[in-house]
Amino acid sequence: MNALEVKNLTKTFEVGKSLFTKGQGVKAVRGMSFDVRDGETLGIVGESGCGKSTLARMLVGLLPPSEGEIQIEGKVQDKASPREFGQMIQYVFQDPISSLNPRKTIREIMETPLKRLHGMSKAERNKRISEIFASVNLREEFLSRYPHEFSGGQAQRIGIARALAAAARILILDEPVSALDVSVQAQVLNLLADLKKEFGLTYLFISHDLAVVEAVSDRVMVLYFGAIVEVGPADAIFKNAKHPYTKLLADSAPVVGRALEAPKQKADELPDPLNPPTGCPFAKRCIYATDICETTDPALIEMGDDHFAACHNPIKG
């Protein structure tokens, strides 16, 4: 069974709206359809403006979709509130410190989901918090402290602990380590891997760091301008990219032992969301673009073993 099924999910924001004039619609997410399989880690990569944060916020119910459908563990979530979403799917935020209320102790922060989502008694809550803290390697003496007393890595463990307290089986990890130092990043990533095994969790791992995504994911989905351009197994997608944008990303990452050279592209700016192109949004930057790319937006089609891409002229190989 799929943990999460998303069909034609779309989000349109209105910009330039005032009391009297109607705004113009800007599509931040343009009809995404994908599945997240039970127990897998799906990596989501893309650059700023690709719609990954909007997608994540819709998946946890913080933002209502304009169109489309979200199914969590087989159940369609139509009018669900964040409260109902919260029991099935939880979110780990990018900035660990600002995701914790500075005026609350860690115990108060940890108790909220247990009390509000599961209605546990005081004794049950204390027991559960002890269990969770043990699994994320945090000492219980931290519970009486305030968020500012923690380093980024510790605060992110607390953020993960809070998500676990809700007892959701799907976690959305939104750049969970990008605010952390390299030496601490690995600690948190390894912890996430252990927790996944221990509790049978499903992860959506959003990041701009391709190497990190590749290291933790089973499958990877590449987003560009609010749409999926490629999705496939993590060990194949960067090595054997089908979409020119995926290849551009992979070639841009600085790697020890590779000469410094900016990969070829025709231009480097994203299309204007107020005036979206008719064809493939990447066509203007793409060195493989042909006439059809200017007129028709390509659909996502299978191009290899469990490997899909939306491109008229996919890279052979």
């Binding site: 130092d181 390299v182 030496s183 390894n190 190497a211 590749e214 290291a215 790697v255």
Partner: peptide, 24 residues
Amino acid sequence: KKLMACVPELGGGKRELHAIPGLP
């Protein structure tokens, strides 16, 4: 040496990462 090992490199596939225990 440890810091370099912490940084995953593209092309290595899914794997356990090296970590430096403790904090600076």
